[in-house]
């Protein structure tokens, strides 16, 4: 097996900084919820959530540092098939004439 997975471990300060960033993200989510953005409120909320999730995956779960891309591909495939489930289900619900 040639894949070697050596973490370039970051400093304690780096991880704490990431954590603080995530907390700021949470605060932003709450703040944005109180601003009337019309249909974009949920979009913004999910966008921030996704950015936070990506940060966690990349830095806390070390996908960014892993020399192999397999872990990233695996987790992406999960979200991909989840997207299929949701989008094709909604293809039904959003186009029903008898809602």
């Amino acid at each position: 097996m040639s894949e070697h997975e050596e973490h370039t471990t970051h400093s304690q300060g780096f991880y704490i900084a990431i954590g603080v960033g995530l907390l700021i993200g949470t605060a932003t989510t709450v703040g944005a919820a109180f601003v009337n953005l019309g249909p974009f409120n949920p979009v913004v909320a999910l966008l921030i959530a996704t950015i936070k999730a990506i940060v966690v995956v990349l830095f806390f779960m070390h996908v960014k540092d892993a020399s192999e891309k397999l872990a990233g591909a695996v987790v992406l495939s999960g979200f991909f098939f989840l997207a299929i489930l949701i989008s094709l289900s909604l293809a039904d619900y959003l186009t029903r004439s008898w809602r």
Binding site: I84, L88, A91, T95, R96, S97
Partner: peptide, 22 residues
């Protein structure tokens, strides 16, 4: 195989559009 499931549901009350896609 993950893209086709609603062909079990053509008469179950899914939308015509969804039925066509599936």
């Amino acid at each position: 195989g993950f893209l086709v499931w609603a062909h079990h549901m053509f008469v179950a009350g899914i939308s015509l559009y969804a039925a066509m896609i599936f």
